[in-house]
């Protein structure tokens, strides 16, 4: 341990107090959500708030899992999100590689264009996109979701990955090139393996965004068997009354896979950022 990390006990305590306090604030709403999902409507929003539901009920979960075809929607969401994420990370990384390692006419302009994609409100594109999807025959299909989800995630992914790629020393590329490796090999065998943290980041972001997407799914999906989870959850919000227990039970079910994906990838998130050959 260096001198730097030999902190006085007092400040160590303070550090933990601050962190625990912060973590509690972060966590409380979730606890409340989970607890509400076990309450019947009559016990929702009481003063003082009940953290431990009394009486507790599994009715909300039973209803969520039985009234709609929840398992099928869950699978649809899994298929759509996984496919979109894999395709998007792959083609975005290729695009990012081109931006990071080549100089070619129109490069700056194209990159600016990709950036604009980050800034346009998605809602406004829905009508033109819908007309387009219709012409492409993508209405009412999971493919229609996937293709547009991939397109929508390209901007951010390219932006993130291009930055990371550019920071990998070009000398490594040169060395490989001297050995006779062509561009694809350098991309696939050198840059990609070195970029695990950035790829993990983009994977999490993309999975998250597609898993939660509602507006586009609502627009193009008609067939109930092709619904994704956000659509199903929205159906629990009624015209005349919202059954909070139901909505939150459905939300808990929907949030779990995201947490799992995050837990799987999170260690790559920060660790390894500076490890390996990059550190040079």
């Amino acid at each position: 341990m260096s001198a730097l990390h030999r902190t006085r006990p007092a400040s160590g305590v303070l550090r933990h107090v601050l962190l625990i306090l912060g973590a509690l604030i972060m966590l409380t709403p979730f606890v409340y959500m989970v607890s509400t999902s076990f309450k019947s409507q009559a016990y929702v929003l009481t003063i003082p708030p009940q953290l431990v539901p009394d009486p507790a009920t599994f009715d909300n979960y039973v209803q969520v899992l039985t009234t709609q075809n929840f398992a099928a929607y869950f699978m649809n969401s899994v298929v759509v999100s996984l496919t979109s994420t894999v395709v998007s990370v792959l083609i975005s990384s290729m695009m990012a590689y081109a931006f990071a390692r080549f100089r070619f006419p129109g490069r700056e302009l194209l990159f600016r264009l990709v950036l604009v994609g980050l800034m346009v409100p998605a809602m406004m594109l829905i009508i033109p996109q819908f007309i387009l999807a219709k012409q492409l025959g993508l209405i009412d299909s999971l493919q229609g979701l996937i293709v547009f989800y991939v397109a929508a995630s390209i901007s951010l992914n390219t932006f993130l990955l291009r930055g990371f790629f550019a920071s990998i020393p070009g000398e490594l590329d040169d060395a490989m090139q001297v050995d006779g490796a062509n561009a694809w090999t350098r991309y696939w065998r050198l840059v990609m393996p070195l970029s695990t943290p950035a790829l993990a980041t983009t994977t999490i972001f993309t999975f998250l965004a597609t898993w939660d997407e509602f507006a586009w799914a609502l627009t193009i999906i008609n067939d109930p068997s092709k619904r994704t989870l956000p659509l199903a959850i929205q159906l629990f919000q009624g015209q005349n009354a919202t059954q909070w227990g139901l909505v939150f039970a459905a939300s808990v079910v929907a949030v779990l896979p995201v947490i799992v994906v995050f837990l799987i990838f999170q260690k790559y998130f920060v660790q390894g950022l500076t490890s390996g050959a990059v550190k040079g």
């Binding site: 007309i131 209405i139 627009t219 008609n222 109930p224 919000q237």
Partner: peptide, 22 residues
């Protein structure tokens, strides 16, 4: 096909724009 109440109008609108209505 059951549609969430808050979203039916948006769905009808986009459906009309694309000529894809029930």
């Amino acid at each position: 096909v059951d549609i969430p109440y808050d979203s039916l109008k948006q769905k009808l609108t986009t459906g009309a724009a694309g000529g894809e209505l029930p």
